[in-house]
Amino acid sequence: MKFAERMNRFGEGVFSRLAEIKRQKLEAGESVVDLSIGAPNIPPAEHILDVLCKEAADKNNYIYAINDQKDLLQAVSQWYERRYGVNLDPDTEICSLLGSQEGLAHIAMSIVDEGELVLVPDPCYPVFADGPRLAGAELYYMPQKKENGYVIRLSDIPEEVAQRAKFMVVSYPNNPTAVMAPDSFYEELIAFAKKYDIIVLHDNAYSELVFDGRHCGSFLRFPGAKEVGVEFNSLSKTYGLAGARIGFCVGNPEVVKHLKLLKSNMDYGMFLPLQKAAIAAITGDQSCVETTRAAYEKRRDVLCDGLSAIGWKFPKPEATMFVWAPIPESFTSSEVFAVELVKRSGVLVTPGSAFGPSGEGYVRMALVQDEPELKQGIAAIDACGILK
Rank of each mutant, 00 (worst) to 15 (best):
N61K: 11
L52S: 01
V76G: 02
S77I: 04
K54N: 07
D71N: 04
Y80C: 08
Q78H: 13
E81A: 15
W79Q: 12
C53L: 11
Y80W: 15
D68L: 08
Q78L: 12
I66D: 09
I48V: 05
E55R: 00
Q69G: 15
I63D: 11
V76W: 04
Y62G: 02
Y62Q: 06
W79G: 11
S77A: 10
E55S: 09
D68C: 09
S77K: 05
Q74I: 11
E55L: 06
N67P: 05
Q69F: 08
I63M: 06
K59Q: 07
I48G: 00
E55Y: 00
N61D: 03
K70Q: 05
A57E: 11
K54F: 13
A57V: 00
R83L: 13
E55G: 04
N67R: 11
K54D: 12
K70L: 13
L73E: 10
N60W: 05
V51I: 05
R82A: 10
L52V: 02
N60G: 05
N67Y: 11
Q74D: 12
V51T: 07
I66C: 03
R83V: 10
V76S: 04
V51D: 05
L72W: 09
Y62W: 12
C53D: 02
Q69N: 14
A56M: 06
D68Y: 04
N61Q: 08
A75E: 05
K54R: 06
Q69V: 11
Y64R: 15
K59F: 10
R82L: 09
E81R: 12
D68N: 09
I48D: 00
E81M: 13
Q74N: 15
W79K: 11
Y64N: 09
K70G: 02
E55I: 01
V51L: 04
A57Q: 08
I63E: 14
L72G: 06
N60D: 08
L49N: 06
Q69K: 14
L72V: 12
D68V: 06
N60K: 14
D68R: 02
K59P: 07
D68K: 07
L49K: 01
K54C: 02
D71A: 12
V76C: 04
D58Y: 03
A75D: 03
Q69M: 13
C53K: 14
Y80H: 13
Y64H: 10
Q78A: 09
I63S: 13
R83W: 09
L72A: 05
A65I: 08
I63T: 14
V51Y: 00
L73V: 06
I63R: 03
I63Q: 05
Q78I: 13
E55W: 00
A57D: 05
A65D: 03
E81G: 15
E81I: 14
Q74S: 06
N61Y: 01
